[in-house]
């Protein structure tokens, strides 16, 4: 059996320890630690369901080795907001009917966060290009585009929520 190592992952602002072998992906490690909001859709970087922010940058956690994420700030969709205090993106997605089956949504909201961080006033092209690695089979994307644009508007109006 290969060597395992105890690593510390900083997830949604909290440090969590886990013991993993080198080949364990960040997706597997996060789910092992109970972060079930990170979804597995393809395990090869085609669908984006497992996207998380790593030091603010959206990555596919299925293509990231857990050891290499140690010491970095990991943000999942649950780290953006919760039922009581949803992030503007989460609110816009829920109210705009952008989530149907919802399985792709944790990854899509992470990608959307990255899009808005880089383009506070995103163009349609910014949104489409930013989502091209996130597959959704239910929505046709139209309401997702609208929700991201709405959230960006809200965030600018509120003077730049995080």
């Amino acid at each position: 059996m290969p060597e395992t190592r105890t690593i510390t992952l900083r997830i949604n602002g909290r440090e969590e320890e886990g013991r993993f072998p080198a080949h364990r992906t960040l997706l597997e490690a996060l789910r092992h630690l109970g972060h079930m909001e990170v979804k597995c859709g393809c395990e090869k970087g085609d669908c984006g369901a497992c996207a998380v922010l790593l030091d603010g940058m959206a990555v596919d956690s299925c293509l990231t080795l857990a050891w290499m994420a140690a010491g970095k700030e990991i943000t999942t969709v649950s780290g953006l907001g919760d039922l009581d205090a949803p992030h503007p993106l989460q609110k816009a997605f829920a109210d705009g009917g952008a989530a149907q089956c919802g399985y792709c949504i944790p990854g899509i909201i992470i990608a959307a966060k990255a899009i808005i961080d880089e383009h506070p006033e995103p163009s349609e092209d910014d949104i489409r290009l930013g989502l091209s690695g996130n597959l959704c089979r239910c929505t046709g994307y139209t309401k997702i585009f609208e929700a991201i644009a709405d959230a960006a508007d809200d965030m600018r109006a509120e003077g730049g929520a995080p």
Partner: peptide, 11 residues
């Protein structure tokens, strides 16, 4: 939708 808040927050 009643199922939306849980889905968008990962709950």
């Amino acid at each position: 939708r009643t199922d939306a808040p849980g889905k968008v927050t990962g709950r």
